[in-house]
Amino acid sequence: MMKISMPRWFYQLASPRWFYNFTSKLLPWFGIATLVFLCVGLVWGLVFAPADYQQGNSFRIIYIHVPSSILAQSCYMLMAVAGAIGLIWKMKMAHIIAQACAPIGASIAVMSLATGAIWGKPTWGAWWVWDARLTAMLVLLFLYIGVIALHAAFENKAGADKASAILSLVGLVNIPIIKYSVEWWNTLHQSATFTVTEKPAMPPEMWIPLLIMVLGFYCFFAVILMGRARVELLEREKRSDWVKQLILVNWTQ
């Protein structure tokens, strides 16, 4: 049989205690980064970036809309990959991460849809149009809701974790199919703002703050994710000695 060896830190992350201590050190840095990126990006984007020659100032919502749309998709990816890791290597920590991803992803998808609707009103004259990208994001929200509902329906955590991991993997396989099917069905939306392969069509003073906002959103996501995972981890490990120790130390201080 072939033996696959994984790096040491990968195994260490699987230990709840190690994860807890590791993220305690990580959290403040990500918090600071979030604050800096979001402040710089928001002020630059909303105040100093030039207005669009066609859409005027209404385009500025792009600085919220694009980062949340990107993040909503990558959050699903992370949830499914974490679920797969949990299923394959039977890591409790991976399931905790996947569980923490679902509500965050759903709320970010709602944010993307809401900012899209607000942007759509002055640009297209309607809050909602049946366009491919909007519909795909709505379906993504439904997939998130399905995962959350399935997780909540199980009474034992182990079953809930595995079942929602399978569902999110099934969703992950389906996302490209859904995306292309709705794209052939209807397209009105402007094409992607950022692609890895091409230079953005916007001038740099417009897309640099956008890039900063995307980074800020990712850092913000990391902070929320770690926070949720830590709370869930304490809840699940409440009978273990190190959690008792931790609480006792905090209690007596």
Binding site: I145, A149, G171, I177, I178, S181
Partner: peptide
């Protein structure tokens, strides 16, 4: 299969499955 062990599978299954039906519906 995901909901067979649950007491209230009925509404849940449509939540899980309907988004996956969209491509078939479109084509």
């Amino acid at each position: 299969a995901l909901t067979v062990g649950l007491r209230k599978g009925g509404v849940l299954i449509s939540l899980l499955v309907l988004p996956l039906y969209i491509p078939v519906l479109i084509f």
